[in-house]
């Protein structure tokens, strides 16, 4: 809302504020330019390097082949499934932490933060130990008589999704929890006194007001899982090619850095599109009637 009466005097103040904002952002800006933008420029350049000057051949090879399109789809599918399940599990979990008080809340928050301290590689290996044919899960299932022989768990899509959800779940819960912790529960009471059933109050008040957290979580988990390398490598291996494993192979085995760079750019674009879209949906909801 612009208030025309207040405008003339506010302009210089706003200018100063903006200047201060730029100042505060400067260190981060410098770091990002040096460590992020510059390497990306190198990556872009590499992806278009050809024997006779710049070319889009590498992109053509990647996007023109059914096999490679399947690989891209594998990456996107893994990210979509991980994000969806993480949202279904994480949304109520964020509420549980937000509603908990005292020691219980600290405990729940610690259990959320602690796994972040362990390396992804460690966690992925832990899953391989759990899921292998003489792993805990198989032993438990046989002990309970659910199965006679060990079931193949490791190197399946199920294992991949389970591990991926487990590893990235905190990134879904944290932003939602942040919003839930600030949520004014009297809004739900107000909705109830206005005639809204608990379900309606949830849909009309809780969901829209926690949406920014949900969208931040979705953007985080999607971009992390679409670009995950260790998780698919250790939990499913060769059977399920993703963009990340393709990139690694292009660089390490096939010695085709141009092709790897093109695949890297495509991966980046997928993540950028999803994050941008969610940022658009996640803008603080302002005055809808």
């Amino acid at each position: 809302m612009t208030t025309p009466t207040a405008a003339p005097r506010r302009v210089p103040k706003l200018g100063r504020e903006r200047l201060a904002a730029v100042g505060f952002a400067l260190p981060a800006l410098v770091v990002l330019m040096a460590l992020f933008v510059a390497p990306l420029a190198v990556l872009f350049a590499a992806s278009m390097r050809g024997p006779d000057g710049p070319t889009l051949d590498h992109y053509g090879r990647l996007l023109g082949s059914a096999t490679y399109l399947g690989v891209i789809w594998n990456s996107v599918k893994l990210a979509l499934e991980t994000t969806t399940i993480a949202l279904i599990v994480g949304y109520p979990a964020a509420f549980a932490i937000g509603r908990a008080r005292g020691a219980l809340r600290s405990l729940l928050l610690a259990s959320l933060f602690l796994p972040l301290a362990a390396s992804v590689i460690v966690k992925a290996f832990a899953w391989t130990i759990l899921l292998r044919s003489d792993g805990l899960v198989n032993l438990a299932m046989m002990a309970l008589g659910l199965t006679q022989a060990p079931v193949r768990l490791i190197f399946t899509e199920t294992a991949l999704i389970a591990g991926s959800v487990n590893i990235f779940l905190p990134y879904m819960i944290l932003p939602i929890y942040t919003v839930v912790a600030q949520f004014d529960r009297r809004l739900v009471e107000a909705a109830a006194t206005l005639g809204a059933s608990p379900v309606e109050a949830f849909l009309r008040v809780v969901v829209p007001l926690t949406l920014p957290g949900v969208i931040a979580g979705v953007a985080l988990v999607f971009s992390l899982s679409v670009s995950a390398y260790v998780v698919p490598t250790l939990l499913i291996g060769e059977r399920y090619q993703t963009l990340t494993t393709l990139i690694a192979k292009a660089y390490l085995l096939a010695q085709q850095p141009e092709f790897g760079a093109a695949a890297g750019v495509v991966l980046l674009l997928i993540a950028v599109v999803v994050v941008t879209l969610s940022a658009r949906f996640g803008r603080p909801v302002r005055g809808r009637s």
Partner: peptide, 25 residues
């Protein structure tokens, strides 16, 4: 009877207006 079936209006101390809706909303 649960609150949403009582038809009792409440004006809260904090007003508890829905921040995602307009005045009319």
């Amino acid at each position: 009877v649960p609150p949403h079936r009582r038809n009792v209006g409440v004006v809260f101390q904090s007003y508890a207006l829905f921040p995602h809706l307009t005045v009319a909303g």
